[in-house]
Amino acid sequence: MSGLNKRFKSWPGWVLMLVVVVAFLAVGATRMAGPQTQSDRVDELTQRIACPVCAGESVFVSQNNASRALRNQVEDLVRQNELSDAEILNLIDSRNEGDLLLVPESTGLEALVWVLPALGFVIGVTGLAIAFRRWKIEAAGLGDPTGADRDLVEAALADEPESNS
Score class of each variant (00 low, 15 high):
109 L>A: 09
96 N>D: 04
65 N>P: 13
96 N>V: 04
110 E>T: 10
88 I>Y: 00
48 R>G: 01
47 Q>P: 06
118 A>M: 13
20 V>H: 10
9 K>S: 14
62 S>C: 06
82 E>L: 14
99 D>G: 05
32 M>T: 15
72 N>V: 12
47 Q>T: 07
108 G>V: 01
27 V>T: 11
35 P>N: 08
60 F>K: 09
25 L>N: 14
56 G>A: 06
57 E>M: 06
64 N>E: 07
59 V>D: 00
41 R>D: 02
113 V>I: 13
69 A>G: 08
107 T>Y: 04
73 Q>G: 04
47 Q>F: 15
104 P>W: 06
6 K>A: 14
32 M>H: 13
104 P>T: 07
66 A>Y: 00
106 S>N: 15
75 E>H: 06
63 Q>H: 08
73 Q>L: 06
74 V>I: 05
81 N>G: 00
16 L>F: 12
84 S>Y: 00
57 E>I: 03
101 L>S: 00
88 I>L: 03
45 L>W: 03
30 T>N: 15
92 I>S: 04
62 S>G: 01
20 V>T: 14
78 V>A: 02
105 E>L: 08
100 L>W: 04
24 F>A: 11
87 E>V: 01
74 V>K: 00
76 D>P: 05
107 T>S: 07
8 F>E: 12
40 D>T: 07
16 L>K: 08
81 N>V: 02
29 A>D: 15
90 N>Q: 12
41 R>L: 00
47 Q>S: 12
65 N>G: 11
113 V>S: 14
85 D>F: 01
68 R>N: 10
92 I>Y: 00
56 G>Y: 01
72 N>E: 11
115 V>W: 12
107 T>D: 02
95 R>W: 05
118 A>Q: 15
118 A>K: 15
16 L>V: 12
102 L>R: 00
67 S>H: 04
52 P>Q: 01
96 N>E: 06
94 S>C: 09
118 A>Y: 13
28 G>E: 14
86 A>M: 09
44 E>M: 05
40 D>M: 11
54 C>N: 13
109 L>I: 11
52 P>H: 03
90 N>L: 07
9 K>T: 13
56 G>I: 03
23 A>S: 11
103 V>H: 06
78 V>P: 02
37 T>F: 06
101 L>V: 03
77 L>W: 05
42 V>S: 01
111 A>K: 08
15 V>I: 10
13 G>M: 15
87 E>M: 03
76 D>M: 09
51 C>W: 00
80 Q>D: 10
55 A>Q: 08
105 E>W: 09
47 Q>L: 14
76 D>K: 07
48 R>F: 00
82 E>S: 15
71 R>D: 05
86 A>T: 10
111 A>W: 05
69 A>C: 07
96 N>I: 05
61 V>N: 14
35 P>E: 07
99 D>N: 10
7 R>F: 15
102 L>T: 00
12 P>Q: 02
81 N>E: 06
13 G>W: 11
6 K>C: 12
97 E>I: 04
87 E>Q: 04
59 V>I: 06
82 E>F: 11
112 L>M: 11
81 N>D: 06
83 L>W: 07
87 E>D: 03
17 M>T: 10
34 G>E: 09
33 A>K: 13
111 A>L: 14
60 F>V: 07
55 A>T: 13
31 R>L: 11
